[in-house]
Measured scan of single mutants.
Amino acid sequence: AQASVVANQLIPINTRLTLVMMRSEVVTPVGIPAEDIPALVSMQVNRAVPLGTTLMPDMVKGYA
């Protein structure tokens, strides 16, 4: 199954992502693919992302 990017902590709005904030997990619905984690580093989220939330393309500025 495809692993997705999941928030490893609460990520406040406009925060630049770092590796420690993200983990890969097989979840439904599928979000951003886990292999994109390196590309997500330093991108900003456009909303607060609670712990355990799957990151979707529309949550990350410049990803989609």
Rank of each mutant, 00 (worst) to 15 (best):
P57I: 04
V5F: 01
L19H: 12
V5W: 02
A7C: 03
V41W: 06
V41A: 10
A1S: 09
P50F: 10
A39E: 07
E35D: 12
T18G: 06
E35T: 12
S24F: 10
I13S: 10
R47E: 11
N8C: 05
G62E: 10
P29H: 06
A3W: 05
S4Y: 03
T54Q: 03
A48C: 05
N14K: 06
R47Q: 13
V26C: 05
S4E: 01
V5C: 04
E35P: 07
T54N: 02
Q44E: 15
D36K: 15
A7T: 14
A3M: 14
A7Y: 00
D36L: 11
E25I: 03
G31V: 02
V5S: 05
V20P: 12
S24R: 06
L10K: 11
E35F: 11
P50M: 14
T53N: 13
M21A: 05
M21R: 03
Q9A: 11
A39F: 13
M56C: 05
V6T: 07
G52F: 04
G62C: 05
D36M: 13
G62M: 09
M21C: 03
Y63A: 06
V27E: 01
I11F: 01
V5K: 00
V26Q: 06
S24C: 05
V26D: 11
L17S: 00
N14I: 03
Q2M: 06
I32M: 03
T54W: 02
N46A: 10
A3S: 12
V20I: 08
T53C: 04
N14F: 11
N46M: 13
V6A: 03
V20L: 15
V45Q: 01
Q44S: 15
R47H: 09
R47Y: 14
M21T: 03
N14M: 14
V27N: 03
P57L: 03
N46F: 07
D36F: 10
G52S: 12
T15W: 09
A48S: 15
M59R: 03
P12T: 06
T28V: 08
I13E: 08
M21E: 02
T28K: 04
Q9H: 07
Q44P: 08
G31P: 00
G62F: 08
V60N: 02
M21L: 06
P12Q: 14
M43W: 07
P50W: 05
P38Q: 10
D58A: 13
V30E: 13
G31W: 02
L10H: 09
M21S: 05
Q44I: 15
P12C: 05
V30G: 09
E25C: 04
V27L: 05
L40Y: 02
G52Y: 06
N14Q: 12
V27H: 03
N46W: 07
V41S: 04
N8T: 08
A39C: 06
G52M: 09
S24G: 07
V26H: 11
I37Q: 06
V41N: 06
V27W: 03
S42K: 09
K61L: 13
I11L: 12
M59K: 01
